[in-house]
């Protein structure tokens, strides 16, 4: 059985010591993937994989990825919420891998909301 090497963990710890970006909780953005039964069945885990791959590939350290439960709009899953620091959270609906890549590029990194995929902007809408 392969063991996680203690040396690898120590190396990460040493490298990060003194980097206040983590300890101050100063993340540039937080991406929440909704993981209720509805989200999981609709593909939420693969959407989470896309964000994880992008974060790893670019060695980004100030974007946090997290999970939440069902938000009650099961027909619109997979859903994610993107919170960029000092901006209002935005909920995206019917997210797939391609949309996830675009949202990561434009909103998470670029700070610009991808309006086409957002749940609602500016007007009253029915969530059906």
């Amino acid at each position: 059985m392969p063991r996680i090497s203690i040396d690898d963990l120590k190396r990460i710890k040493e490298e990060q010591t003194g980097k206040m970006i983590l300890r101050g909780g100063q993340f540039r953005a937080k991406v929440t993937v909704h993981m209720g039964t509805c989200g999981i069945a609709a593909g939420a885990r693969e959407v989470m994989n896309v964000f994880r791959e992008n974060i790893a590939a670019r060695e980004i350290q100030d974007v946090i990825l997290t999970n939440s439960g069902c938000a009650g709009l099961c027909a619109k899953e997979p859903m994610i919420t993107v919170e960029v620091v000092n901006s209002a959270p935005v909920k995206y609906i019917l997210v797939d891998k391609e949309k996830a890549r675009k949202i990561f590029e434009e909103h998470v990194l670029g700070g610009k909301v991808v309006e086409d995929y957002a749940l609602a902007i500016g007007s009253e809408t029915m969530a059906t």
Binding site: P2, Q16, E59, Q61, I64, L65, T66
Partner: peptide, 25 residues
Amino acid sequence: YVLDTREIRAELGDIPMNFPQVVSL
């Protein structure tokens, strides 16, 4: 195969489990 995050957490100190390099590992 066994993965126990309690062992890993003990080594990491205040580095969070979802830190990208830890996740890659």
